[in-house]
Amino acid sequence: MATAVELERAHGAGHGDDHGHADHPPTSTGLDHRKLLMWAFLASDCMFFGSLIATYMIYRGRAEDLGFAPFPSEILDIPYTSLSAFVLLMSSLTMVLALAAIQKGDHRGLRIWLAATALLGAIFLGGQYFEFTEFYHEGLSLQTNMFGASFFVLTGFHGAHVTIGVIWLLTLLFLSLRGGVKQEDSLDVELAGLYWHFVDIVWIVIFTLVYLIPYDEVTETQTGAFTYLAGILRGVASIF
């Protein structure tokens, strides 16, 4: 724990409360409070998504079982969503570039890459809006069947995360334009980045479970006692 090296490092990394001040006491782990907070929050957020994904997995295939159209297999457009997934994943790259820029003190680079990340996020959201509208016109709503309910709630919850992320990025961009994001404040950008990458990673899981795994394999009615447990375990395991 408190070896000489660590105590020294802790003293060096003395960033404290919500905004770093040089005279804050050192932290015991050497990590900034806010960074640790973000990691702990993301752990909690894993459980949020875990519960939602488990719910989706439990009800996966139930629309077919009961014969309530539209079925996921006929309505999901994999090529279209692959494209918007690609856009979202690329935004992680631009996010990394934004952080790298501010760490080097490159304010112009920070603004360009922040704007690019927010734009890619906004394109993803636009794609989701279009997809939801399209599904609605094809007869799938929250109330139609279990697929509609669990699909819209899960992907909508993720979309809400992306929306908050885009607003956060735009706020950072606005602050940067007013000269409020200095090189030593790069942690502000890093925190937004941690959140953004997490939201991207969750989308990889959702995209795989909701879109990519074929639906015709789950035809038999799943009434076994362990269905719930298996669903939940699959959901949780998929996060890691």
């Binding site: 702990a40 752990a43 909690s44 957020d45 459980m47 949020f48 875990g50 519960s51 939602l52 719910t55 929250l142 109330q143 279990m146 309910a149 669990s150 709630v153």
Partner: peptide, 25 residues
């Protein structure tokens, strides 16, 4: 608390969807 409360948050959210939005979770 951090690891357990999300489960009831989602459970209650789904219940609220059932009550307010006509789903049937």
């Amino acid at each position: 608390i951090v690891m357990a409360f999300p489960a009831i948050t989602i459970a209650l959210a789904l219940l609220s969807f059932d009550r307010f939005a006509g789903t049937s979770f």
